[in-house]
Design a protein around this nucleic acid. Sequence first.
DNA 1: CAAGTGACTTCCATCCTACGGAAGAGAAGG
DNA 2: CCTTCTCTTCCGTAGGATGGAAGTCACTTG
Lengths: 248, 248
Amino acid sequence: MTRKPTDPTRPAAGPRREAADAEGNVRAVDRALAILQSFEEGDAALPLVEIARRAGLHLTTALRLLGTLESHGFVQRGAAGGYALGPQLLALGERFRRSLRLEDQVMPALDRLRSESRESAAFFVREGEQRRCLFRQESPQPVRTVAQVGDVAPLGIGAYGRALVALEAEPRPRLPIVSHGERLPEVVAIAAPVLNGRGAVAGAIGITMPRYRFDPAAEARCLPLVLREAAALTRALGGDPSPILALA
Amino acid sequence: MTRKPTDPTRPAAGPRREAADAEGNVRAVDRALAILQSFEEGDAALPLVEIARRAGLHLTTALRLLGTLESHGFVQRGAAGGYALGPQLLALGERFRRSLRLEDQVMPALDRLRSESRESAAFFVREGEQRRCLFRQESPQPVRTVAQVGDVAPLGIGAYGRALVALEAEPRPRLPIVSHGERLPEVVAIAAPVLNGRGAVAGAIGITMPRYRFDPAAEARCLPLVLREAAALTRALGGDPSPILALA
DNA sequence: CAAGTGACTTCCATCCTACGGAAGAGAAGG
DNA sequence: CCTTCTCTTCCGTAGGATGGAAGTCACTTG
């Protein structure tokens, strides 16, 4: 018999996270990946003890796993003597993103959106019952960054989240979708779906801005922009934008 | 018996890579990371057999490790039934990059370089005896992309590679450094070092263009741009740009 | 200055887990 | 139908990962 989901003999106390191992997984790898995922936004270099605590691992175990991760460049030792995420992750992350072959089409569209709206533009894709930010261009204005590349958010809420399911929702919403503080307070987002060559939803493109900058003038300026780029990007991906334009 | 570097009984032919395990590493983790690294540029989804061959692993072993990697989102199964890199890598790669806290300063500088030069701009950091591309803004012109975020290249060669060591080279080179087809044929690059608040080299910033676009007019336009942004970025990082300007 | 504290590292015997052989399932092709 | 190929499940074994204990080092406290 193999690993039970709940093991009462586990180190206990209160490790923040737990290596939520699935049945049949390789434990050592589960734990190593749990270590990587124990790094949170803004953590520069974490001391060994902290990593072990977060991942719920024995000190020795964490040390050994970190050594292995380090020798592959997945973590690196900080100058002040802790462990930080390593550069190999950047290389693989970009490789993942390029494997989707969206960058060449999406980035120019985001560039146009940003320069014409002077707001942050982003592109999300659906990932099961979530969505993930794949690309982003920051507003040239000194605004708060609310989202980050690689982040996940729920489907069905927020402009991007609703845009991704817009073509299967009943009743069909008008496009582009505008959300006022729907997921994040004080934030307005405008988004529309993008189709690929097979007519499926490839993602959602749009712009995000602080609410105080969203007035009727901004609305009149930005909505057509988003719609235009959603259609342009759909064409660039070999798709037919008419299902999108039909809801405009 | 364990795996020798060369094992005649291996699945045949030539496994392209080998899990170059270091002493004291956790084997299962070594192998899992080797699987991740066996994905190359342009590989969309690899069949299990191919992954096992590249990583030099038994089929069963590769399958089990892939299962574990999949349950953490480090790989995902393609529609056509193979394995591809997973979205979790993007999240962690970006987290790594943000942990360096350079993005807010570097990206605006790259934006300016790109929009004023209409060429691709990039920022490299030193990583031991190599350098790695951390940020990049693509030229608006339809040019060939030569480098990618996350890529590594050697130090000491190419404009960026020489800029990173410019302040310790003898004799000191003039800045910015210009390379004509030095590392990549048909490519011209212009780069200069960037200093941080402690006076150390934080990285190198510059632009890259196809050789045919580099004429005296382009040179007169671009060199000051790179120098200006190297100094501006140095100031933005709290450093003193005078060592850079002294070599201009 | 010595004792104490806390983070990190090394060592090693034990037990359990990852391993890979073998065989089954499933699809594609002849 | 049989062959061939890729992928998957199963299970006994052995070698590897584990974690306790003790050692090192730097820094603080009495």
